[in-house]
């Protein structure tokens, strides 16, 4: 177990270096010059050359990359071309919002997905099963920017139960809860659907497993069978799906943050790619990849803990 974690952490370092290289090169190959964006259409050629020099873009690309790597090794992600602020600081102010949104969406997804999956497994082929399956499939099929606009229209503009957008307070407070509800539903439906499917199929498998039959045969009460024997085992694969989905959620925040005016990392990435803010994009992608890998590592560890059958050599 410990060796597994160490091995994965070493891999992580190479993975992150690989990512810096890819993103760095991608941003430099991409057409579009950060200086002409900063200068705007009014800037003259000499204005642009001066901005190039200020940003260090007139150095050879390899030197720029090595400088960047060197900075990272010293814990310095560089400065944003646009705002001149430190990249770490820019990301740090936005990260809580994105994490709040991702966690809240995950909670929504679990609250909807797990019970829906279990109920439809227990009542297999009933109308309940049929409708919950349909519902979860529809959940994956809705474009989430469309759903977001619809939710704003109904619940924020017409009924005025919830604010239209913005996220200023943590989601566990009442105000924050109201602010995050619509974005979390918008983002969570897709994952809810996947969790529901996974819970349903893994529950079905467990119900038919030998040890459950044995338990039943031994005369254990039905609800005990379901809650104690089935559920715990059925949730193991669900945990994996949750972990994998968390990474997907981080990506999904890009559009949700845009629609709901949430100041998060996703929106920062959209703006930074559009304005060719190289250090910002590199820093952001690095961070998102880091979180993704760590979450999956944690999921694997949890997985190993709840399922003694799995071992890592």
């Amino acid at each position: 177990m410990v060796t597994m974690i160490i091995k994965r952490l070493i891999q992580l370092i190479f993975l992150l270096i690989g990512i810096t290289f890819i993103v760095f090169m991608a941003m430099h190959i991409a057409p579009g010059d950060p200086a002409s964006i900063i200068g705007g259409p009014t800037a003259t050629q000499s204005d642009i050359l001066a901005i190039h020099h200020r940003l260090g873009l007139d150095k050879p690309i390899i030197i720029q990359y090595l400088d960047y790597l060197n900075g990272i090794l010293h814990g310095d992600l560089g400065f944003s071309f646009q705002t001149n602020r430190s990249v770490a600081q820019e990301i740090w102010t936005r990260l809580p919002n994105t994490i709040d949104l991702a966690i809240a969406s995950m909670i929504v997804a679990i609250i909807i997905g797990v019970p829906a999956g279990i109920i439809s497994a227990l009542k297999q082929n009933s109308w309940l099963d049929f409708s919950s399956t349909t519902l979860s499939l529809a959940g994956i099929s809705i474009p989430n920017f469309w759903l977001g606009a619809l939710l704003i229209l109904v619940f924020a503009v017409n009924l005025q139960w919830l604010p239209v957008g913005g996220l200023d307070t943590p989601f566990w407070t009442f105000k924050g809860f109201k602010e995050i509800l619509l974005p979390a539903i918008t983002l969570g439906t897709g994952s809810a659907a996947m969790i529901a499917r996974m819970s349903r199929s893994s529950m079905l498998e467990i119900i038919r497993a030998d040890f459950v039959r044995t338990a039943r045969a031994k005369g254990v009460k039905e609800h005990m069978v379901i809650w104690v024997h089935c559920l715990r085992n059925a949730l193991i694969p669900v945990v994996t799906v949750i972990g994998l989905n968390f990474g997907g959620l981080l990506g999904g925040t890009i559009i949700t943050e845009q629609v709901f005016a949430i100041n998060g990392v996703g929106r920062l990435m959209v703006e930074s790619i559009a304005s060719r803010d190289f250090p910002m994009v590199q820093g952001g992608v690095l961070l998102i990849a880091f979180i993704f890998v760590i979450v999956n590592l944690v999921v694997d560890i949890v997985y190993a803990l709840i399922d003694p059958r799995i071992s890592y050599q």
Partner: peptide, 20 residues
């Protein structure tokens, strides 16, 4: 693995930034 670590939309945005 490297590609998995990028969120899908972000990867697509980078590719489109390069290709147009």
């Amino acid at each position: 693995d490297l590609m998995f670590a990028f969120p899908g939309i972000l990867l697509a945005m980078l590719i489109i930034a390069i290709l147009g």
